[in-house]
Design a protein around this nucleic acid. Structure first.
Length: 280
DNA sequence: CCCCAGGTCCCGC
DNA sequence: GCGGGACATGGG
């Protein structure tokens, strides 16, 4: 039985779409509720009329860590109003109007997206699950393990990591963990930088290019102007805004940087979800 | 057996 | 800058 429970009142929040949207890779739906780990806590989340019901399996004195993760304080309708009023955006918002951006732990987000390159989302989930099973400390109140700390990964060897089926991404993950564990790379410092400099710093890490850097900036640090361009988004921009005319990569980025407004990252997530879920 | 996946890196023009 | 291939592994 749950040790603690709280209702987080919130409107315009589609919990299922948000937890299943490719921002996070550890949440599983069981009998209508969502199970995952936030910080050290095993958490069960259930969408209810008035918002989100959260349960943990060990005592919680301060729930702010969960509000922060879920970003329940964001005024979503105000964000949606800043989107361009064009057919593709309207269709994307209509198809899923409660989709949210989460605020993840930077290390978990960085590590997960280093493991994401040329992998389908189902497979990323599988790799991350293996990594947590093998290297993660137990979470509070049973359930799945915590995401392994940098120092734990840093102490591993490449062969051990490869057993988690991450293939050629293993050296990148290992190098990032060691840079962070040794203090040569400071994830907290990123928070204090301007967007361009923050992106540049992340891209000094092996296996981190523009796209993965943008994912981390958007999903973990809250840089709302970050606009990750992956194969889905590239397809969306080509098809929906350039009539399949094969605009150059650079042209797409320039368009994205100016067209979607101050919350371009949110718009990106809506387009991504729209492309992945629409029929055909 | 083929193509592709929330890419990145390295190569040669 | 820009196209092309390599890189592990698994799904369809």
């Amino acid at each position: 039985m749950p040790a603690t429970e709280i209702i987080l009142p919130v409107a315009h929040y589609d919990l299922a779409a948000t937890l299943d949207s490719g921002q996070v890779f550890r949440w599983r739906q069981i009998e209508g509720s969502w199970h995952g780990v936030v910080g050290q806590h095993s958490v069960r989340l259930t969408q209810i009329e008035s918002g989100i019901c959260a349960q943990t399996f060990s005592p919680v004195a301060d729930w702010s860590f969960l509000r922060e993760f879920l970003q329940t304080q964001i005024d979503l309708p105000a964000v949606l109003k800043t989107f361009p009023d064009d057919a593709p955006m309207n269709a994307a918002v209509t198809s899923c109007s409660g989709l949210r951006l989460l605020r993840q732990d930077p290390w978990e987000c960085l590590a997960s997206f280093i493991l994401s390159s040329t992998k389908q989302i189902v497979q990323i989930r599988q790799i991350v699950a293996l990594l947590c099973e093998r290297f993660g400390e137990p979470s509070l109140g049973a359930g799945p393990a915590c995401f392994p700390l940098p120092q734990r990964i840093a102490a591993a060897c490449e062969a051990d990591l490869r057993e988690c089926k991450m293939g050629f991404r293993a050296p990148s993950l290992l190098a990032a963990a060691r840079q962070i564990d040794s203090g040569k790379f400071d994830l907290e410092k990123i928070r204090t930088l301007a967007y361009a400099e923050a992106q540049h710093q992340l891209m000094t890490l092996r296996g981190v290019g523009e796209k993965i850097a943008d994912c981390v900036l958007l999903f973990a640090y809250g840089f709302d102007s970050a606009f990750p361009v992956d194969v889905w988004i590239e397809r969306a921009l080509q098809e929906l805004y350039f009539s399949r005319r094969r605009a150059s990569d650079q042209r797409l980025r320039k368009f994205a940087a100016t067209h979607f407004g101050p919350h371009a990252g949110y718009a990106q997530q809506y387009l991504f979800h729209y492309m992945r879920t629409k029929v055909k």
